[in-house]
Structure formats: structure tokens, C-alpha cells
Design a protein around this nucleic acid. Sequence first.
DNA 1: ATGCCGGGCGAAGCCCGA
Length: 261
Amino acid sequence: MAIKIASWNVNSIKIRAEAVADWLREAQPDVVCLQEIKCQDSNFPRTIFEDIGYNLAILGQKSYNGVALLSKWPISDVTAGLPTMKDDEQARYLEALIGLPGEAIRVASIYLPNGNPPDGAKYDYKLEWLAALQDHARTLLTYEETLILGGDYNVIPEEADVHNPAAWRGDALFKIETRQRFRRLLGLGLTDAFRLCSSEPGQYSFWDYQAGAWQKNLGIRIDHLLLSPEAANRVQQSGIDKHVRGREKPSDHVPVWAILN
DNA sequence: ATGCCGGGCGAAGCCCGA
């Protein structure tokens, strides 16, 4: 059977619950990685999603960050937080096994630190987090499973993924050290699902709320689904649900997805 | 152009995002 996996930074699940449910009904993903839910587990609007057939795993945090997994199939073996970063106080990583008919796949929802300003403690934290993810991903890849690391990576991989590369050169999302770390992650054997399916430039997943960025299509591609070789071999399609950004009260990010056979 | 929106918190105005 075909499996549809998606990732979406929703910028508050409480504000966005109905919009997310609308998109789930039309897009029908099997598994969704959510980021920036911005609430504690106890305040997550669970029933809205359970009522339309999704199981939930949540790693919440008051006010900031927070990640979750939604799945039409049973969720088990949940890992909350990066095992390689035990003292992380921010809710940015949630991994689980998804029990599909006849097989299990492993999925993680990732909210990588933004890192700006690009020359201080916040950037150091971003690099530390990337290194910890690198270490954990290396372990996960030894399992040789169908593995999807989906999330808001806060990394613009290439010039084709930003409207104005020159203006972003020094930014924590695009500076060369950031892109090198991301490339190193791919070097472990992970594949960017979207780039596996399209070489088209200017395909964005985020547009700032300010300065008419959406209207002018001044976006960046920072939300990614990274696949193990076992997952990459099964990819049929990958896309970005850009139209969602034009709706009422949108998140500044849109869903990205991939279909595996 | 880092604060032009938008959200959290909490009840005004500040912190944060990318």
C-alpha cells in the first residue's frame, strides 16, 4: 500500500487546530510530523484529531517549541527528545514506530533551532543540536529501516531554495557552516525527499508574515523529509502544499509530503 | 530593514520567530 508522510510547522496547534484538521481531511496523510505546537501535552486539542481517525504522540512545552506525531496507524516505541542530547530543555524531537499493515516504519518530528543571531549562544546551540542529530541519525541508519526524519530544519540547503541568496548569506539558516552541517547529515545516507523528485528552484515551504513576503513569493525552503536508503528507494512523489499559505489565518509554513510505495 | 506580522502570556507590553 502507498504511505503518505507529511511535515508541517503549524505555529501554535491551539490557534491552528481547525485549519490542520481541514488539511488532514483533504490531504489524507498516514503520518504527520508537527512542529511549534506551542503548548503543553495537556493543552493539545486531541479530540479534534482523534475524531477524524488519528492517533497522537506529543512532546509539548509551554509557549515555545513542541513537536507531535499524528498517525492513522498505531504509534509505539516513542522516544521523546534526542537520546544524544539528554539535557536539552527544549521540546524539539519526537520519534516513534508506526505500525502499518504488515510492517513498521520509523518516523521522527524535528524542530531544529533557528540559530539567529548567527554569531552567539543561539547559533552555538543550533550547531550543538545538529551534531546531536548527526550522532543519533547515524545510529538509526544502522537499523536499516524505512526511516523518515521530517521537520522544520531551519536550514536552506541550496541557493535554489531561497528567493535572494545574497541577502541571506550571513543568516543562521543559510550561512555556509549551517549548510555544511546539513550536507554532512545527508552524507550519512539520508535523502531530501523533495529534491529526489524535483530540481525546480523557487519551491518554498515558508514565507514570512511581514512585508508581503507571501504576496511577492519571497520564500525559503526549510521544511524537509530526510529519508533512509530503504525509504528513498520507495518514494513515488513528493510535494509542497503551497496553497495552504493563502488561506485565512495561515501558519507561516506549509505542509511538505512524500508518498512511498 | 531584525520586528513591517503573528502567536504566547496574560491582561500591557514584552519575548520570540526566520
